[in-house]
Amino acid sequence: MPAKRIIPCLDVKGGRVVKGVNFLHLRDAGDPVEAASRYDAQGADEVTYLDIAATLENRGTLLDLVSRTAARVFAPLTVGGGVRSEADFVALLRAGADKVSVNSSAVADPELVDRLSAIAGAQALVVAVDVKRRPGTRPTEWEVHVAGGSRPTGREGIAWCREVARRGAGEILLTSMDRDGTRAGYDLELLERVCGEVEVPVIASGGVGTLDHMAEGLRFADAALAASIFHDGQHTVGEAKAFLAERGIEVRPCP
């Protein structure tokens, strides 16, 4: 098995890093290229950009940002947000993204997953799945949400993960909307279920508040995506890796 990956995630809008809670009260938090380079130097195994504006008029800005990042960061770069078509997907890859993630557009048109996977291989395609628990269900069920977690779709989460893996997703970026922004830890029951059901790597997201949370999530997941724990300077990627290595979790040593 490869080493467990630590992936800082940057929310970007209009070519800048933005911070907020649940996509509200956004404030400018600097230049994404600087932030990505800093994480690269700290030993991040990948960097993810999520374009939270994801509007058509913003595409040029995003492509320019990706291309400037790819010229400086020599670690894998995943870019998501507002990818609606084959053309969007290819434009991001050609700008220098190594992987592109899709979310709402895959729910609207599941065959898009098959088509994107055929373009550059499964390893270039991440399907992001945002889910919320269905209250009172036993065993627990999760419902897929789109549009930044604001719109329920009626789709059951575990079955959707299985479907996108079968259709050609190379990885699943699994976010618990219940935990996102809470710093209360990953939804471990969700991670265990999905990781047991799909053959593709799973990236855990939503809820990391401490390094212990990261270690718990990586018992099941192949990679841990985290935002605030790194952006707020609470921990460096190096500290996270040292903590995980002490607990017997295989991580790539920092440079």
């Binding site: 098995m1 490869p2 053959e199 790597p201």
Partner: peptide
């Protein structure tokens, strides 16, 4: 082979 996560994505 099956039995491991595929694709093999990450640092080995």
């Amino acid at each position: 082979p099956s039995g491991v996560k595929l694709p093999h994505i990450g640092w080995s």
